[in-house]
C-alpha cells in the first residue's frame, strides 16, 4: 500500500515535470499581458497555432529548434494583432480574445491537416537521472530543455517586474492609468508589446506540446490548457514565480490519472483525467469569494474595473 502510494507520488512528480511546461509558458505570457492591464484569452489560440507551426517547421527543416523559434514568431504575430485591435477605442479585450482563440485554433487546424500523419524530429531531453540505475527514475528525470528555459523565464520576469525600468513601467500602466498618464507613459504601446510578447511565450508552450510531450501534432493536442493557464494566473496572484509553482501543481494534478493506472487503479481513468479542470474550478471558486476584491490584481484589468 505504502509502496503504491510512493509510486503514485513519484509518477505524479515525474508527470508534473513532464507536462507542466505548456502551463508555465502560457501562464507567464498571460501574466505579462495582464500586468500591463489587458487580458488575452487568445493565448489558447497562440498555443495551438504554435504547436502546429513548430511541428510543421521541424518537419520541413529537420531542426526542432527552428520549430520553437517559428512557434514563438507565430504567437508573436497573433498577439500583435490582438494588441493592435484592442488599442482601438471601445474594443473589448475579452471578446476579442475569444475571437482570437477560435481564429488561432482554426488556422492551425486548416494548415495543420497535412502534418497529422508525418513524423517530425522532436526536441531532445536532458537527463538528470544519470546517478540512478532504475530505468523508471532515469525516464522520470528526463527533462525538456524548454522546461529549464521556462524556469529561467519565470525568474527573469520576476526580476524584470522588480528591478527594471521596463518591468516597472508595465506595472504602472497595468495598475493605474492616471499615474501612467501623469508620467507620460505610452499606455497603448506598452500593452501592445506586452500582449505580443506574452503570446510569443504561449507559442513556445505550443512547441513543447508538439515537439516534446506528447510529441505529435493533432487537433486534440491542447484540450484547453491555454485557457486553464489564464485561471492559473489568478491563482498565482500575478506573480511569475507563483506561476511556476502553480504550473507544477497543475501538472501534478494532470498526472494523477495515469499515475493511478500504473498501480493498477483502472476505474475512473477519465474522471481522474479531469483533475486539472476540477482544480481550476476549485481555484476560481476559492479566489472569487464574495465581497472581497482580489489581492495583487492589476487595477486596470477590464474584468476588475
Amino acid at each position: 500500500m505504502i509502496d503504491s502510494l510512493a509510486t503514485v507520488a513519484f509518477s505524479m512528480l515525474a508527470g508534473s515535470l513532464r507536462v507542466s511546461t505548456p502551463f508555465l509558458f502560457v501562464s507567464l505570457g498571460e501574466c505579462l499581458t495582464e500586468k500591463s492591464g489587458r487580458i488575452n484569452l487568445g493565448n489558447e489560440g497562440a498555443l495551438v497555432l504554435g504547436a502546429m507551426v513548430a511541428y510543421a517547421t521541424s518537419y520541413e527543416t529537420g531542426n526542432p529548434w527552428l520549430g520553437v523559434f517559428a512557434a514563438a514568431l507565430a504567437g508573436l504575430c497573433l498577439g500583435a494583432l490582438h494588441g493592435a485591435i484592442c488599442s482601438l477605442a471601445r474594443v473589448n479585450d475579452v471578446a476579442m480574445g475569444i475571437a482570437f482563440m477560435l481564429a488561432g485554433t482554426g488556422i492551425a487546424f486548416f494548415f495543420g491537416k497535412p502534418y497529422v500523419q508525418p513524423s517530425a524530429p522532436l526536441l531532445p531531453g536532458i537527463s538528470f537521472g544519470f546517478w540512478s540505475d532504475s530505468a523508471q527514475v532515469k525516464n522520470a528525470l528526463l527533462v525538456s530543455p524548454l522546461f529549464l528555459l521556462g524556469i529561467a523565464a519565470a525568474l527573469a520576469m520576476h526580476w524584470c517586474f522588480k528591478s527594471t525600468r521596463a518591468g516597472l513601467r508595465i506595472r504602472i500602466v497595468g495598475d493605474s492609468q492616471d499615474a501612467a498618464l501623469a508620467l507620460g507613459l505610452p499606455i497603448d504601446r506598452t500593452r501592445f508589446l506586452a500582449t505580443a510578447a506574452g503570446s510569443a511565450l504561449a507559442g513556445i508552450g505550443g512547441a513543447f506540446l508538439s515537439l516534446y510531450y506528447p510529441g505529435s501534432w493533432n487537433e486534440g493536442l491542447s484540450s484547453g490548457q491555454g485557457l486553464m493557464a489564464v485561471a492559473l494566473v489568478v491563482f498565482a496572484r500575478w506573480n511569475p514565480i507563483n506561476c511556476l509553482y502553480a504550473s507544477l501543481l497543475f501538472g501534478a494534478a494532470g498526472a494523477l490519472g495515469p499515475s493511478l493506472q500504473t498501480v493498477g487503479v483502472t476505474w475512473g481513468y477519465y474522471l481522474f483525467y479531469a483533475t486539472p479542470y476540477v482544480v481550476t474550478l476549485a481555484v476560481l471558486i476559492v479566489t472569487a469569494r464574495g465581497g472581497t476584491s482580489l489581492r495583487g490584481m492589476p487595477g486596470q484589468l477590464s474584468i476588475g474595473r
Partner: peptide, 30 residues
C-alpha cells in the same frame, strides 16, 4: 499634485518615487 492621486497603488513609495524620474536607468540598483 492632483486631487485624484497619481501614485501607483500596488507599488511601494520608493518604487513610486524612483519611477517618477525621467532618467530611470534600464536596470535599477535598489
Amino acid at each position: 499634485v492632483y486631487q485624484h492621486f497619481t501614485l501607483v497603488p500596488s507599488m511601494t513609495v520608493a518604487e513610486n518615487l524612483v519611477m517618477s524620474r525621467r532618467d530611470v536607468p534600464a536596470a535599477i540598483d535598489w
